[in-house]
Simulated assay, not measured.
Amino acid sequence: MAAFHHISLLTKDRHENVRFYTEILGLRFVKNTVNQENHRMLHYYYGDYQGSPGSVVTFFLVPYLGNRYDNQQYISTIGLKLPQDSLAYWQDRLDHYDISYTTNDRQLRFYDSDQVSIVLTETDLPSLPLEQQVKNEIPAEKQILGLNSSQIHVGDPVATSAFFEKFLGWTTVDQRIQLNATDFLDILPTESEEASRMGRGSVDHIAFAVANDAELEKLHQRAKEQGWNIEKLVSRGYFKSLYIREPGGNRMEFATLTPGFTIDEPLESLGESFALPPFLADQRAEIEAQLYPES
Rank of each mutant, 00 (worst) to 15 (best):
G79D: 00
G26A: 04
G249T: 08
G248H: 09
T22Y: 08
G248R: 04
Y44R: 08
L242N: 03
W228F: 12
E215R: 15
L27Q: 12
F110I: 12
K224M: 07
P53V: 03
S295I: 04
L270W: 10
E37Y: 12
Q178V: 11
R19G: 00
D156H: 15
Q290G: 15
H15G: 08
F239C: 06
N38W: 00
V134H: 03
P277C: 05
R19H: 14
A281K: 15
F60R: 10
G47E: 03
L130K: 15
G201H: 01
Q133F: 01
R251Y: 11
R236V: 00
E253K: 05
T103F: 00
L128I: 08
Y45E: 02
G260F: 01
D213R: 15
I177L: 12
K166D: 00
Q72G: 14
T102Q: 14
D174N: 15
E37K: 15
S196F: 01
L25S: 02
F239W: 14
P157D: 03
G227Q: 10
Y64G: 07
T182S: 10
Y292R: 14
A140L: 01
D48N: 15
E286H: 14
Q283T: 00
N104D: 10
M1E: 09
V154G: 07
E268Y: 12
L10Q: 11
E141Q: 12
M252Q: 06
M41Y: 03
D98M: 09
F59G: 06
A209K: 15
L242S: 07
E122H: 09
A211Q: 14
E191L: 10
K12S: 13
E294A: 14
L120V: 03
F110W: 09
K81W: 00
R197K: 11
L145D: 08
Q221D: 01
L188C: 09
V173A: 05
R93P: 13
E246H: 14
N71P: 05
P266L: 01
G201V: 01
T121N: 11
Y89M: 06
P189I: 03
V234G: 02
L125S: 14
Q290T: 13
E268W: 07
Y238C: 02
H220S: 01
L10E: 00
Q72D: 13
F279M: 06
I287L: 02
L27M: 15
Y111I: 04
L82Q: 06
L128S: 05
R109E: 04
M252N: 08
S86M: 06
A289P: 12
F184V: 01
W170S: 01
H96K: 15
Y292G: 10
T160M: 03
G51I: 10
D124M: 10
L120W: 04
V116D: 01
V210W: 07
E231P: 07
L179H: 12
F59L: 04
N250Q: 12
D282L: 05
P126M: 02
I244T: 09
Q72T: 11
P139M: 02
L25V: 02
S161Y: 04
A181N: 11
E288M: 14
I118Y: 00
A159N: 12
V30D: 09
S100Q: 14
D183G: 07
V203K: 04
H96A: 08
L128E: 03
E165A: 13
P53S: 06
N67F: 05
P63K: 09
A88C: 06
D13G: 05
P129R: 11
Q178P: 13
